[in-house]
Design a protein around this nucleic acid. Structure first.
Length: 590
RNA sequence: GGACCGGUAGCUCAGCUGGAUAGAGCAUCAGCCUUCUAAGCUGAGGGUCAUUGGUUCGAAUCCAAUCCGGUUCACCA
């Protein structure tokens, strides 16, 4: 049990015993003590002085003395400043914690809690390659999965492939018209980029045709509908839905190219799924639920035959759930998918990692599922994240300002290589060790950059900042880990219990490490990997100060050396674990 | 227009279940490598926490209004 929780419990007990009231541990506010005061943790008394009608001094003294008497293993001293009760935790506690945990891999893994969580992420369209926005999505989804696992949950990672619709047909049409049978193999192009090129070509071709038509007096709107290439795409969509064999074959072939390309990228960035759903297989599922909803009176039919739900009572609008021709819309298939997922995996929670432009959509989805009384409804959670923008503004496909995922990964790895070569510290590495190291650093830096900010906020991706390897970055944390490992290679702790006093930096480090399990709970609860990223950075920074100030292998005496070796071991362990939860590796040397 | 999200140092961001003098990184400036990896450490400068009012012992944090930016309100997905 963490110190903070113990202090809360002990303080609540103290107040309840002393004043005959019933305060809950969670009513006790405990903060880190500010460095300029003596103590480790501070109980804020203000909230109690009114209720208990005591002066802060009296109250603080009573609680402090009670804790000294009744919690001698935990509390060694106290002082009161204004309404703040500063408590010192005993050195025994810290040293015992260090001694028992420094060598325990289990320190960072928590007991299974029989809670099952499904996380859907990535969810790409199969007509173009992944971009920077997908990377934020994927890193978030992956990291949340790991954080949930680390806090004892069972996790199922899923992906929905958006593999059908007019946008897919566009690249298919263009390939038919212009490719002359070219393939990724014949051109030496990665499959997703190959198909993406035809999608881009469609846009260009359409623009050309629209210009021609408008020059002949047609309105722009009209021209976009009448352009031959658009008509071809629409026909292809109809053929696809009718299952015309040639179209299906083409669709399957081009999709397989895209998937092969995605797989390369997924593997490179260390991303995988337990289960992939395909929209082409799930889009029909929702229709049965529409029927059921009609009978329940949740939905209603308009005169033209389209089916709607009225959400004005919930502060939203009327929303269509099925077209008048009986085909499914976006939300229909999501209702079906929600049921499908639940039937297959029976997860308590179902998390969708999807951009915040779809906040409204997921609000509606959850509401509909609730009204249909689906068992999966309450567990639906939209992990909404903000858009990634460039300093010049939003990324736009048409303006060619999209940052391609493969390109940015390559660039980061390249910079990692250059910087590593400049520093010249790993000249004895084997060639493939070096390649691993460049990947670890470059991809680590990218992941950290995208995960270190609150997911909800939209973020600016400045290529220059993101390529910085100093300060609040993965390479700095990785470097700290490598430094520790370098020490531990020459000297290992023996495992003895230390009796020496703790210096401020030593205690700061233990204190921070002791907070780690709580931090993970918080990150899981808030669906926020940035908390882990910030924590890892603070830990590395605290260690670096400690490292500069105090020698480990040349410590003042044997006991100090043992203490610091244990501290270093545990620090490295927690850094590695925390970074792994972000999907980032830490090297032994760099 | 309705709904939702955001506005904190020159830039990028923490802090937001109310607590002590608002913190990091980058950038700028000044120091520190014959001893454990300088991708590091120490220090300096830099703030009307968008604005105004309210709630109270106490507000960057909660409430209201206003201003600014974004997203969304499709028989697209």
């Amino acid at each position: 049990m963490s110190v903070v929780i113990q202090i809360k419990a002990a303080t609540a007990q103290a107040i309840n015993t002393l004043y005959d009231v019933s305060i809950l541990p969670n009513d006790v506010l405990v903060n880190d003590t500010k460095p300029e005061f003596e103590g480790d943790y501070t109980v804020v008394l203000f909230s109690f002085i009114k209720q208990l009608k005591q002066s802060p001094e009296k109250l603080g003294n009573d609680i402090g003395n009670y804790l000294l008497q009744n919690q001698p293993a935990l509390i060694s001293g106290f002082n009161i400043i204004k309404g703040f009760l500063n408590l010192s935790v005993t050195n025994i506690f810290w040293k015992d914690f260090l001694h028992t945990q420094y060598n325990q891999p289990s320190y960072v893994t928590q007991q299974p809690n029989s809670h099952k969580v499904m996380i859907e992420y990535a969810s790409p369209n199969t007509n173009k390659p992944l971009h920077l926005g997908h990377l934020r999505n994927i890193f978030l989804g992956w990291s949340m999965s790991e954080i949930f696992k680390a806090t004892g949950n069972e996790v199922v990672k899923t992906c929905i492939a958006n593999d059908r619709g007019i946008h897919i047909c566009k690249s298919m049409v263009c390939w038919q018209l212009f490719a002359n049978g070219a393939t990724p193999e014949s051109t030496g192009t990665k499959g997703d980029h190959f198909v993406g090129d035809y999608y881009v070509l469609f846009g260009k071709e359409l623009k050309k045709q629209v210009e021609e038509l408008t020059a002949n007096g047609m309105s722009k709107e009209q021209a976009e509908k009448e352009a031959p290439i658009m008509k071809a795409a629409q026909k292809m969509l109809r053929d696809w839905e009718a299952g015309v064999p040639e179209v299906m074959d083409l669709w399957k072939m081009m999709n397989s190219w895209v998937y092969a390309g995605f797989d390369v990228t997924y593997k490179r960035i260390g991303c995988d799924f337990d289960k992939v759903y395909y929209e082409s297989e799930t889009y029909i599922l929702g229709k049965q639920l529409v029927e059921a909803g009609l009978q329940k009176g949740v939905f209603y039919k308009k005169d033209d035959g389209s089916v709607w739900i009225d959400l004005t009572g919930d502060g939203l609008d009327e929303k269509i759930v099925q077209r008048n021709d009986g085909t499914a819309v976006y939300i229909t298939q999501d209702i079906g998918l929600a049921v499908n997922k639940y039937d297959e995996f029976k997860c308590d929670d179902s998390i969708y990692v999807v951009g915040d432009e779809q906040n409204y959509h997921f609000k509606v989805l959850k509401l509909i599922c609730q009204k249909l009384e689906l068992p999966s409804a309450e567990g639906i959670f939209h992990l909404s994240y903000g858009m990634v923008e460039l300093p010049t503004g939003r990324m736009k496909t048409r303006e060619g300002t999209v940052v391609d995922a493969d390109d940015i990964v390559d660039e980061m790895v390249n910079v990692a290589r250059k910087k590593t070569e400049e520093l010249g510290k790993v000249q004895d590495f084997e060639p493939d060790e070096l390649l691993d190291l460049y990947d670890t650093i470059g991809i680590g830096a990218l992941k950290f950059f995208l995960l270190r900010v609150d997911p909800k906020k939209r973020m600016i991706f400045n290529p220059e900042d993101s390529i910085d390897f100093h300060g609040f970055t993965a390479p700095f944390i990785q470097f700290t880990h490598a430094r520790i490992k370098s020490i531990l290679r020459r000297q290992q702790p023996k495992g003895s219990l230390i009796s020496t006093d703790l210096l401020p930096l030593e205690k700061e480090l233990i204190k921070l490490i002791e907070q780690y399990p709580n931090l993970l709970q918080e990150a899981a609860q808030d669906h926020d990997p940035s908390k882990v990223a910030i924590y890892c950075y603070n830990l590395a920074k605290t260690f670096s100060s400690f490292y500069t100030e105090h020698s480990i292998t040349n410590a003042e005496n044997e006991e100090k050396m043992e203490l610091r070796l244990q501290l270093a071991t545990l620090t490295a362990h927690v850094i590695k674990n925390g970074m792994n939860l972000l999907g980032i590796n830490v090297p032994e040397r760099m």
